[in-house]
């Protein structure tokens, strides 16, 4: 726990100091986007990688977070943190309701039903023109009133400030995700992934666990969607479209599903690739698809999983002091 907070803080501080050492708008915006998408991918990986629940409809919660924060700030509120919080709560509620139905089903049907619900959300977004702007999306910009907290006022209107705001929220989310996967609850998630039948036979009501993690994953997806809406100052129907659900899946496939780092790295790789490819060609999908195929066929797993399971890494890690719980049982932290 303490170690996780420690490393989370170190990473956050490094990320925040970085633009003061070397500043470019282009890079700041890229880092912001990568962090937001990394959170989206990490949230989905709580389901796919840790619990074995393959959701094809994760964009639903991303989209609900994005539209909610946009609509709230455009029409109803001038409190940024409050709107952000409410947007995340809306995503969580949507995940609770949708999850309630989806977890009843086995793997394939779970995947299909989660996709079907996301398409329903998409349809609502497109048809409810009065609220969402329909096909056009939520245009006209999203106001970003300054945040006042503890007597201090902080505006996220500039790229740099928005970047700092994103770093803090995203890294804090990663720290919470790390807590969850290292916790007893997380240990049970892994047994559900490995063998849900046997998990029942150690006395666990598997469905409740699946619903809880589904809601947690939806909550973080909602946060990433809301950040994205603030970042680009708009929300568009494709935020809830199935192609948006596919993006974090690709990130997980490229980075690896066995760790939290995998999807983060996957998000970074795919975002950078997109940037480079679109610089040189319009055949973006073709090039990206080819890269993905080569990647998956040659490594057969995500990059981080590949590295963690390589012989060299194993030798290196076993040469380090054993941090595993031992019989005599010194606390590991």
């Amino acid at each position: 726990m303490k170690k996780t907070i420690f490393w989370g803080s170190i990473i956050a501080v490094i990320l925040i100091i970085f633009p003061f050492v070397y500043y470019s708008n282009f890079m700041i915006n890229y880092l912001t986007q990568i962090l937001i998408m990394a959170l989206f991918a990490v949230s989905l990986n709580l389901l796919i990688g840790y619990t074995g629940m393959i959701s094809f409809g994760h964009a639903a919660y991303f989209g609900i977070g994005a539209y909610s924060v946009g609509i709230l700030l455009q029409k109803y509120s001038s409190n940024l943190l409050g709107s952000l919080f409410l947007a995340v709560v809306f995503s969580a509620i949507a995940a609770l309701v949708i999850g309630f139905f989806c977890i009843r089903l086995g793997r394939i049907y779970f995947a299909m039903l989660s996709l079907a619900f996301a398409q329903i959300i998409y349809t609502i977004v497109v048809k409810w023109t009065g609220m969402t702007g329909g096909d056009q999306g939520l245009i006209g910009g999203i106001p970003k009133p300054p945040i006042s907290l503890l007597g201090l006022s902080f505006s996220i209107g500039t790229p740099l400030n928005f970047y700092i705001f994103t770093v803090i929220l995203v890294i804090a989310s990663f720290v919470i995700c790390k807590f969850i996967v290292d916790s007893p609850f997380g240990a049970i998630l892994k047994t559900i992934r490995d063998n849900f039948l046997r998990t029942y036979f150690i006395g666990i009501p598997v469905k409740i666990y699946q619903l809880v993690i589904f809601v947690i994953a939806g909550t973080f997806a909602g946060l990433s969607g809301a950040l994205m809406a603030l970042f680009i100052s708009g929300a568009y129907p494709d935020f809830t479209y199935w192609t948006k659900s596919a993006e974090p899946i690709f990130m997980i496939l490229v980075g690896g599903m066995g760790s939290l780092l995998g999807p983060i790295l996957g998000a970074a790789i795919l975002n950078l690739l997109t940037a480079y490819i679109t610089m040189y060609t319009h055949l973006y999908e073709l090039v990206m698809g080819t890269v993905l195929v080569i990647f998956i066929l040659s490594l057969k797993k995500g990059l981080v999983d590949y590295l963690l399971e390589s012989e060299r890494f194993k030798r290196w890690s076993s040469s380090l002091a054993k941090k595993k719980p031992s019989r005599i049982g010194q606390a590991t932290e």
């Binding site: 726990m1 666990i204 719980p325 932290e333």
Partner: peptide
């Protein structure tokens, strides 16, 4: 089993 913010490894 239903703890979220405890490190499993730390439960002696």
């Amino acid at each position: 089993n239903f703890k979220f913010f405890t490190d499993s490894n730390s439960l002696e």
